[in-house]
Nucleic acid binder design. Structure first.
Length: 610
DNA sequence: GAGTTTGAAACT
DNA sequence: CAGTTTCAAACTC
């Protein structure tokens, strides 16, 4: 099996192909144009650097450091398997209407960020993909959307491609390709399958008819496959064709006899689609932009051409209409603007009428985010503190004061702070809002230290402001403290040199912790999916209704959550649900021993590759 | 495994 | 934007 990833050892051996491909190059990558104006809803800025930012965000997670997290698949792999509906996290951040999807935050090669439909049959045989998707590109250098890996925003790894440039060694070319691709289609790396925002709400993923709400953003254009073969992207993604499609002779609609015959006759297929749906769910959870097309109920050429308005296919039309209506009713601003947990993107298994929503749907709550923010703020504060102490020590040293006593006292302070930090954070993460508040008060307002502290970075201050709103609003006990904090931090802002360093350090730590958190979040989703898949496979008798909503009851979800957190946190005691997720982050943070973290070369990258 | 079919992506 | 070509996956034999 020829491997083209990595060192490109195979490159030399594919002379002919290379020659051909080389000719391609000029064509494939026209002179780099000016950076497009990218829509970074979140980041706002549209500087020329935006493109670079985007392309970097599309970097395969394989580049990121840290432990390889087992992908969504059931089988642990060295890297994630390529699955269409998974890991939107890798989606480029470029966005227009919808909020940016999540940046790549995890190392392993992810499932397709954009819900790429194609999936090798072998993966679906039993619903449990056995191996990672490997492309077989020969002429595209894996730098075009033809390449599944590239389209998924991941590096080729273990593929059978020739002259592969979708790897670290060819990052510049790859980046150009990404830019070119985005130039052509700003949505190129976004999920093709967008679930209805409707799915954001529980129990609304499915109409009474069991209609699938997820739909292909662009729609398919099938002519001969009847949309019942995997050539059809809708079919492959296990969704019904929608008004977005321009297919002919479509049989991929609710009520289609052909479709039902296809599915109901093959239980294994159902399981496969269960898995597929799970994949879709996770993709949706993490990154589906949900940028659904306008709920305009476009007529599908094929249908009308073949059946005419009289419509010999009332069920289909009805389904379409229902879908359209559904979409229409869900056009309202929804949680889809808030990437993540509560966005119950759905990819429904049509035939079995299961409705799936994000595997993370029950894992994250707004409360969690709040908590995470507080933890990050604490980290930021601690970082500033530590740096300040360090600098003070250095200064005093320079001033010729007694080295021994200074060093020891500083160390003591550091140690004290260390233990305090750990404790604070643990408290924060383990005691919910109350702990959160206390934590903030202790870490931010601990007496004399406040006046000495280095200022927060602008970004951190912004975060603090938000935190202040949410966390301190109710804090009648110390309104003055809060005012003092704000005053202190802001007034100290541009104090001398080294502030930049402090900012950088604060931000680095916060980003690192945030990355850790996201990684764990993904892992949670994966664990959940794994369990889901096991259930799906092992329990034919499972009441299908139980599968609705990720196939887990609340208890199930809770148990998973608990088991996961028990594995990473120090406490096996029941904790408030909202604190469990981030206790994992805290645990990681503690392992990093914050005081040691303030060396840029420690604890991961300064700029976590996301 | 080779050849064919298919439809998305790329190109004109 | 429509038509054509290229491409790689899906499919068939």
């Amino acid at each position: 099996m020829e491997k083209s990833e990595g060192g490109e050892s195979s490159e030399a051996s594919v002379s002919a192909a290379v020659a051909t491909a080389s000719q391609h190059v000029a064509v494939d990558f026209p002179a780099k144009k000016l950076a497009r104006q990218l829509d970074f809803t979140v980041f706002g800025g549209q500087s020329p650097a935006a493109v670079t930012a985007v392309t970097e965000q599309i970097q395969p997670l394989a580049m990121t450091s840290g432990p390889q997290i087992v992908p969504v698949k059931l089988t642990p792999l060295p890297r994630p398997q390529l699955q269409p509906q998974q890991h939107m996290v890798l989606m480029p951040m470029k966005q227009t209407a919808a909020p940016p999807t999540h940046p790549s935050i995890r190392p392993p090669k992810p499932e397709s960020p954009r819900a790429r439909p194609r999936q090798s049959a072998s993966e679906l045989k039993d619903g449990t993909p056995k191996k990672q998707k490997q492309c077989n590109c020969k002429h595209s250098r894996c730098l075009k959307l033809y390449c599944e890996c590239f389209a998924s925003g991941i590096y080729c790894d273990g593929c059978n491609c020739n002259n592969c440039h979708n790897n670290v060694e060819n990052e510049p070319a790859r980046r150009e390709a990404v830019e070119a691709t985005l130039e052509r289609n700003p949505h190129a790396f976004r999920p093709k399958i967008a679930s209805s925002p409707h799915g954001a709400r529980d129990n609304t993923e499915e109409t009474g008819d069991g209609l699938v709400l997820a739909k292909h953003n662009k729609g398919c254009h099938c002519k001969k496959s009847g949309c019942l073969k995997k050539y059809c992207e809708c079919f492959q993604a296990n969704i019904l064709c929608s008004e977005n499609c321009k297919c002919m002779d479509c049989k991929n609609f609710e009520g289609s006899e052909e479709r039902q015959a296809l599915f109901h006759g093959d239980h294994a297929n159902n399981m496969a689609y269960l898995q597929q749906a799970a994949n879709a769910a996770i993709t949706g959870a993490i990154g589906s932009s949900g940028y659904g097309s306008p709920p305009v109920n476009k007529k599908r050429k094929g249908q009308e051409l073949f059946f005419g308005l009289a419509n010999k296919d009332p069920v289909h039309r009805q389904g379409q209409l229902l879908q359209g209506n559904h979409m229409k009713s869900s056009v309202l601003p929804s949680l889809s603007s808030i990437p993540g947990p509560c966005v119950g993107n759905t990819a429904t298994v049509g035939p079995s009428k299961f409705t799936y929503r994000s595997l993370l749907a029950d894992l994250i709550q707004p409360q969690d985010l709040k908590e995470l923010c507080s933890v990050l703020v604490v980290y930021s504060g601690e970082a500033a503190k530590m740096l300040a102490d360090e600098k003070d020590a250095s200064q005093k040293q320079a001033e010729g004061q007694t080295e021994a006593s200074l060093a020891s006292s500083t160390q003591e302070r550091v140690n004290l702070k260390d233990s305090g930090t750990e404790k604070d954070i643990l408290d924060c993460s383990s005691s919910g809002d109350q702990g959160e508040k206390i934590c903030m008060e202790e870490s931010s307002l601990d007496g004399a230290d406040v006046s000495k502290r280095r200022p927060m970075s602008p970004g951190t201050l912004a975060l603090m402001c938000d935190e202040s709103d949410t966390m301190f609003a109710a804090s009648v006990a110390s309104p003055n403290d809060l005012a003092t904090l704000s005053c202190n931090t802001s007034s100290q802002l541009p104090r001398g040199q080294g502030m930049t360093e402090t900012y950088a350090e604060q931000e680095r730590i916060v980003l690192t912790k945030f990355r850790d958190c996201l990684n764990r979040l993904i892992t949670l989703g994966e664990i959940k999916e794994t369990k889901c898949s096991k259930m799906a496979r092992g329990a034919d008798s499972v009441d299908q209704k139980d599968m609705i909503g990720n196939g887990f009851t609340t208890t199930e979800t809770r148990n998973q959550h608990d088991s996961f957190n028990n594995g990473v946190s120090k406490s096996a005691l029941p904790q408030p649900r909202t604190t469990q997720l981030f206790s994992a982050v805290v645990a990681t943070a503690n392992n990093n021993a914050l005081p040691k973290v303030h060396r840029p070369d420690e604890n991961g990258d300064v700029n976590p590759k996301i």
